[in-house]
Amino acid sequence: MTAANEIIHQTLRLRLMAALTALPPKSEGLDFARLKKLTGATDGNLGAHIAALERADYVTVEKMFVDRKPRTVVKATGTGRKAFAEHVAFLKSIIEQ
């Protein structure tokens, strides 16, 4: 049985990784506003959990300006995709027991 990933398993981080890995690896990722809408998180909470995932090398964060407005885009890394897939496998293994 695979092991649980304690970094990913927190509710908001699980939703973040689910959202980011739902897109193909070549896609540009999801911006902060869209992630906030998808996860129902507040700005501060979302930022803190994205930072935690970034420290674990599960996501990359790119800040840019579009039409002079700041835009933050988050993308899952290969490491993050693998870790998330392993955690999902762990969850499924619990149900299959």
Binding site: L14, R15, A18, A19, L23, R34, V88, I94, I95
Partner: peptide
Amino acid sequence: LTSSQAQASLDDIEQIVRRVKQSA
């Protein structure tokens, strides 16, 4: 984790994935 906790997490994941794909 209990089985129901694991299922709740998987359901949450499925809902988010569905919404992301719909949005895309």
